[in-house]
Design a protein around this nucleic acid. Structure first.
Lengths: 198, 198
DNA sequence: GCGCACGTCTATCAGACTGATATATAGGCG
DNA sequence: CGCCTATATATCAGTCTGATAGACGTGCGC
């Protein structure tokens, strides 16, 4: 039922690169695929336990971590690798992703264009920030990970973000123009209404 | 805890347009904002109950529905309108959306480019289908809803989808070229390996 | 040398949300 | 008559998020 536990596969993929603890996994995910994938501890830790029980991963070692607590380092098992490869070959199941901005805009029709305009401006500013960050990440990766066989795939995922954000910026500009037009029309109508009332 | 119940606001926004049943709400959401927002019954019905208890919506009437069962039609209360307006003014909280395609691609680095290429091709075909559907929806709306004050907002949300999908198609083409290049490089390396082994 | 902010680490919980499934009825089709 | 489709409500297991808690170590300021 529901969708299949994708956290499993993020864990398997990451552990195929090298053994890690739950905390380390979250950090590794954040630092490599963080712009399109994140895992919360509330998802990660129970999933790790289940995966260990299922024999997909195994406790590699326990270390005294810098920070007192015992760090449980996991590694993939052969079975885990098999399951991961199976997932990698399975087609992606598409799904509609919720877009709260568009929902607010749609309902904003009944309130007036001013708030909608503010939402668009905020979204635009945020997208520009992300765009800068992505560009910097891309440059850093090219410099520091030269020759890494993962680099072209890395770059591909960043390009996806870049193209998506650029399209979003263009849409923001369109939306701004449309909403400003609607605001002007509304103001003109109001003014006419006042004149009529005289 | 967790994120706030956005289903509430989708319900409020839709009921501000006109009173509806749970089933009708789902259909209305599907038919207007379905390309970027969906609600499941498992979310909708319990949410409706809670909202009624909280006084955000009220039972408007019960009808014998075409289809035997009793249809519970809800309407917004004044309090519901107030809460909805408050939500409309509140800024959108941004969050990283998961992208399974990119995750498979990233891990696909360790398997080889062939499966990745298949994923990209499938995604491209799917995006083209969606693009066609959106264009048709846009044309239909312009024809049938001429003069509707909601129309410009409607068009705006469709433009967002259109621009996003076009960007995705461009990315797919880039990705295809990159992956084909990697596949060729891998094949050449294999061939060299064979020659060396002689 | 005392407190305390910060980083590392595991862990848990309420609540949101999905996708599947169950149940019931009316109408149309062959 | 059975079968399909549309209308309608309801429930459930299971995924995932964001918040929070607790425990320890290091370095910093005062």
């Amino acid at each position: 039922m529901a969708r299949e536990n994708t956290c499993r596969f993020a864990v398997l993929g990451m552990l195929c690169r090298k053994p890690m603890s739950g905390y380390g996994l979250r950090r590794a995910i954040e630092q490599t695929v963080g712009h399109f994938w994140q895992e919360s501890y509330g998802n990660l830790y129970p999933t790790l336990e289940r995966m260990e029980a299922e024999g997909l991963i195994a406790l590699d070692r326990e270390e005294r971590s810098p920070g007192g607590r015992v760090r449980k380092v996991y590694r993939v098992t052969t079975e885990g690798r098999r399951v991961c490869a199976g997932w990698l070959r399975r087609p992606v199941v598409p799904h509609v992703e919720r877009n709260e901005l568009l929902l607010k805009l749609f309902f904003g029709a009944r309130v007036g264009p001013k708030d909608s305009l503010a939402h668009v401006e905020r979204s635009r500013a945020e997208a520009e920030g992300l765009l800068d960050a992505l560009r910097r990440i891309d440059e850093d990766a090219r410099r520091e990970r030269e020759g890494d066989p993962e680099l072209p795939y890395w770059h591909l995922s960043i390009r996806a973000g870049l193209l998506g954000l650029e399209a979003h910026l263009r849409w923001c500009d369109e939306a701004r123009a449309t909403l400003q037009g609607l605001a002007r029309a509304q103001a003109a109508k109001k003014k006419r209404g006042k004149q009529d009332a005289r």
